[in-house]
């Protein structure tokens, strides 16, 4: 059974979002997504400073059997990326919601309400 922390927001394409005190939004992929992909071997992170619109492909996570695009859940500018994933992509497998975060975004619009809460996401992946 996948872990789905209740305080986070989710997308249908299995990204999660956490709103920080500083207004920045941390983004990663869900426990369910990492389990589907299997052992991750490589992450291609976005360049800090790049502006994205919600729905853009912004990042690629790669396992032995799949390479999967990560879609930007909200519009905004990438301000920080998790550099430690370059050497240890397996942190996404072992700690998808903490050490395995991908990048932080400074949002340019308020789109958070359009995303799923934990219950809705849980229902989605149980389908």
């Amino acid at each position: 059974m996948s872990e789905v922390p209740s305080e986070l927001k989710y997308t249908e394409s299995h990204e999660w979002l956490r709103v920080g005190d500083d207004g920045l939004i941390t983004i990663g992929i869900s426990d369910h997504a990492q389990a589907l992909l299997g052992d991750l071997v490589f992450v291609e992170l976005p360049e800090p400073g790049t502006e994205f619109v919600a729905g853009d492909e912004c990042c690629v996570v790669e396992s032995v059997k799949a390479a999967s695009d990560v879609y930007m859940p909200i519009s905004g500018e990438v301000v920080e990326v998790n550099e430690s994933l370059v050497d240890e992509p397996e942190m996404i497998n072992s700690s998808p919601y903490d050490n395995g975060w991908l990048f932080k975004v400074k949002p340019s619009a308020n789109e958070l309400d359009e995303l799923m809460d934990a219950d809705a996401y849980l229902a989605e992946i149980e389908e």
Binding site: E62, S63, V64, K65, A66, A67, D69
Partner: peptide
Amino acid sequence: LQAREQHIRRSK
């Protein structure tokens, strides 16, 4: 590095 290839990545 097969994840780059057509049989997995298809149109990408």
